[in-house]
Design a protein around this nucleic acid. Structure first.
Lengths: 331, 331
DNA sequence: TTGAAAGCGCTAACAG
DNA sequence: CTGTTAGCGCTTTCAA
């Protein structure tokens, strides 16, 4: 045995006085090995502190037992929750999860994705920031399945798991309209984001269905942080004709809106997309467009695994349903 | 070129009419390559859709560019936030992060850790559930650095990044005592957990420093969910001599206590360890033992990388400081 | 049932 | 500047 580095199967074989192949058989639990030999091998393994090199093992067979997950922004609890769900499925299937964040940067996303592919991963789950994903087409052709999560991708055949953004927003706004609200503000993050576009479209559909129009002055975009959303809501409520209700297109905006509304004691109705921790403990009642976030991540992972097992089927887009729920009002 | 599988450097070399080594040089951006040859190689790479196999590359050199992170429970936002911080450092250092959850199961932790080591990772960050980590001693000897996070490990030389649990709890309870409280309930999760033991010890220290004793009837352990904590608080407040203040040893307990206290309109003082999302929007004022959770994860990752670069130094335990802050009270 | 030999895709010496 | 020759640690034929 070489005195340097980790012991290898060759070292174990020498120590046990058997052939390399026998060691390999024992280590991998293959049948038809004489118990006596197996015992000697195991003994040598112990004595040497041998650990199998999984990388070398998969070099030949190309075993791909890790899943790559590229989130758009890991500092967002939404994506972290999804990562946890993906991790749970991966580990149930005895696979590993390698996780990275594109920071909403298309170039970074591409670099990360290609980098992971170079590591011969078994599949890739991406929350896309880039608009075109043909940079992955070669990998997909060669058998690495890709699943888009939360936002659709383009340029390659790949499954997508999305929320029913439009339906959820439509139902939420329809309810506000049914409650008699007419001046409903719609607060959004950057307009370019897929989910924002969809949720705005859903809100418009609700207005259209009621034969009404959404006042353009009440549509505010680009609210990327709670602080910015808070300021926007303050401004709206200070206006000549303030809204009687606000629809917040994501959880950060809802939080900002709440900060503004609660601190000024306003009674404006609030409905927000995305639930958040402790929403139940809020001092005032709000409505939330809720959904099963675990299902979102789990479904992505499961779809990936299915696709790995059976690449033949055509690619699908799956919509995760939403529902309106009550939150807060404990004060 | 073989018609099956992904193209290799040999294929590229054949296609470009150069040697394998030249291809390797071009792919790895080594200097001293004739621009003309380089162009031919790049051309062939393009034509074949060649992508480097990073696994094969690292087989020889033993490059270890991924960090393993084993959390105790990824469904807990505390660990998710830490994972995000670790991920940020990893990606800054151009390393990958593979993440898993032990689900507070020592056997699972061991399996995961050993599994990751088999994949030749460059280092391991563990939130330990197991009490003895000598199962990792061989890996540590062979040069895989291990860093314990949030809880200390044992049985191997490894750095640890911990919160100042004892100091934080002591300061919190000392403040309650200074405010005139004498009947202070201390609510804890399972007594076996390191952080709980430390926080309870801190609370006792504060009492001792004031020359007082903590009433054993007011120490409640085993509050693993908000619901259980809520019930416990309800019972305490219904008792003959209810506490005038409660110290909650983690965020889930704080939330449960808040549910009880807010819903019955009690004015009992609350101080909790760990901040949580939206604590600022709570309908009543509470005190929080806060700390920089990002620093916790980042420091673990940085320590791991330092150790990788310089294994010589002795192992250290680093305490992340805490501070008392005001939260809530917007209602 | 066991073993020898030939790779997997790449990098590291060492020559040209 | 370029190519040849060995491996990395393991799995996989194919014989024995």
């Amino acid at each position: 045995m070489r005195r340097t580095g980790r012991p290898t199967m060759v070292d174990v074989a020498a120590e046990a006085g058997v052939s390399l192949k026998t060691v390999s058989r024992v280590i991998n639990g293959e049948p038809h090995v004489d118990p006596g030999m197996a015992a000697r091998v195991l003994d040598a393994v112990d004595r040497l502190g041998y650990h199998r090199n999984a990388l070398a093992a998969s070099l030949r067979s190309g075993d791909r037992d890790t899943i790559g997950f590229i989130a758009a922004d890991l500092s967002n609890t939404f994506y972290m929750a999804i990562a946890a769900a993906v991790s749970a499925v991966a580990s149930r299937e005895r696979m590993h999860l390698v996780m990275a964040s594109s920071e909403e940067d298309a170039v970074r996303e591409r670099t990360l994705a290609l980098d992971l592919c170079q590591r011969q991963i078994g599949g890739l789950i991406v929350v896309p920031t880039a608009v075109d994903h043909s940079y992955l087409s070669r990998e997909v052709e060669l058998g690495t399945p890709v699943v888009f999560l939360d936002r659709p991708g383009s340029g390659i055949p790949a499954d997508a798991i999305l929320l029913d953004n439009r339906g959820g927003a439509r139902d939420a706004v329809a309810e506000l309209l049914a409650d008699g609200h007419r001046r409903i503000a719609v607060l959004l993050d950057a307009g370019g984001i897929f989910t924002m576009t969809e949720r705005l479209a859903g809100a418009r559909e609700a207005f259209a269905a009621a034969g009404l129009d959404l006042d353009p002055a009440l549509v505010v975009e680009g609210l990327h942080t709670p602080a910015v959303a808070r300021d926007a809501v303050d401004r709206l409520l200070d206006a000549q004709e303030p809204p009687t209700a606000v629809f917040c297109a994501n959880n950060r905006i809802t939080i900002g809106a709440l900060e503004a509304v609660v601190s000024r004691g306003s009674t404006v109705a609030i409905t927000g997309f995305d639930d958040f921790e402790l929403s139940r403990l809020l001092p005032r009642r709000i409505r939330i467009v809720d959904y099963d976030i675990t299902a979102l991540g789990a479904r992505a992972a499961e779809t990936l695994l299915t696709r790995r097992a059976d690449p033949a089927t055509g690619s699908h887009t799956h919509l995760v349903p939403t529902c309106l729920v009550d939150r807060g009002g404990v004060g």
